[in-house]
Design a protein around this nucleic acid. Structure first.
Lengths: 170, 170
DNA sequence: AGCATATGTCAGTGTTGTTGACATTCCAAG
DNA sequence: CTTGGAATGTCAACAACACTGACATATGCT
């Protein structure tokens, strides 16, 4: 257990003998890959006064236009105060529009402005370029496996949120 | 381009027609999965006075005992000031030991103490549990694909660093 | 001796997370 | 209808952790 080696780890057909070492490699792969994954948008954002949090907000508002603050909160998994700071600057800068709800006036429905869409496009273009290259390099089967493992790695609530978004986009 | 739909996306054999929508789903999967990936250690760390940065340092020192500060700097991709803050607290708290290099006395070689190992074990255990479940749920083929895509997503330097670590562990 | 390298430190700043307090709005029980 | 609780969103203050820039120290190399 200390070393992570398993005496005789034959690669069974459906049984998975997973050594600590194999899992550790997966952990490190996640770490390094996520760094690459965020590197391109981060570069773009650092030139502006924005950060990764702004990116996330813009992404999901674009993805689900008219979503409420509370909704966004649940998806992003941060406190409303944290999100609010980000949202405020985005609204002040004219990238996001906040409309008071018609049915429930407590709610604010969020939309991207023209300018907001432009930023979203710019950021996600950068991210998609890398994603596309990785997908092409790895091939379709690998991509399917990639997605399967990622889904299995999510918390349950997030798996649900992800599923809803996925379906809405089709 | 605006909508991300591709006119006739037949699934060719080796050609990959990737719609923006497919890529976007991959992006979101990465986001949600990474949150799950870090959730368990984060919970443990927040009870102590440590954060994710400490986890990373402890992980890689455990992985490559005797590594130098500079080495760690390159792997973690942060500034020395940032790393130093973390390292200082870890050394003060007796989790990490810093030994002056024998060949080159400018270098400091980093090791985990008994106590440091204990924390590393605790953190990576939590992370491996989730990883193991995800791997089991997804199956061996999916895991292989997962790793392939992640590697393709890394920056080149990181791919090299990852490769070296991977080999050293076998 | 003189320059480069490796490390550590101090000071300042920015993003992003947190908690606490509070205003507004809705809804349902009395 | 009023009142109190729940839901929603905002403001303020603080902590973690990244960054830059400047500088000190010790060492290695030519």
């Amino acid at each position: 257990m200390a070393d992570g080696r398993v005496p005789s780890a034959q690669s069974g057909e459906n049984l998975l003998f997973l050594t600590d070492e194999q899992l550790r490699q997966g952990i490190e792969a996640m770490f390094f890959a996520y760094r690459g994954f965020t590197a391109d948008p981060d570069r773009i954002l650092s030139d502006m006064a924005y950060g990764r949090a702004h990116h996330r907000a813009v992404h999901f508002i674009n993805r689900a236009p008219g979503t409420t603050v509370n909704n966004l909160l649940n998806i992003l998994g941060v406190t409303k105060q944290s999100l609010n700071r980000v949202l405020r600057t985005l609204i002040e800068d004219g990238l996001v529009e906040s409309k008071v709800g018609k049915a429930d006036k407590r709610e604010r429905h969020l939309f991207l402005t023209e300018e907001g869409h432009a930023l979203e496009q710019k950021l996600s273009d950068a991210q998609r370029v890398r994603m596309r290259m990785a997908y092409r390099e790895a091939g379709p089967d690998a991509v399917a496996g990639f997605r399967t493992v990622l889904e299995a790695m999510m918390d349950r609530e997030m798996r649900n949120a992800y599923g809803r978004l996925k379906d809405s986009g089709t």
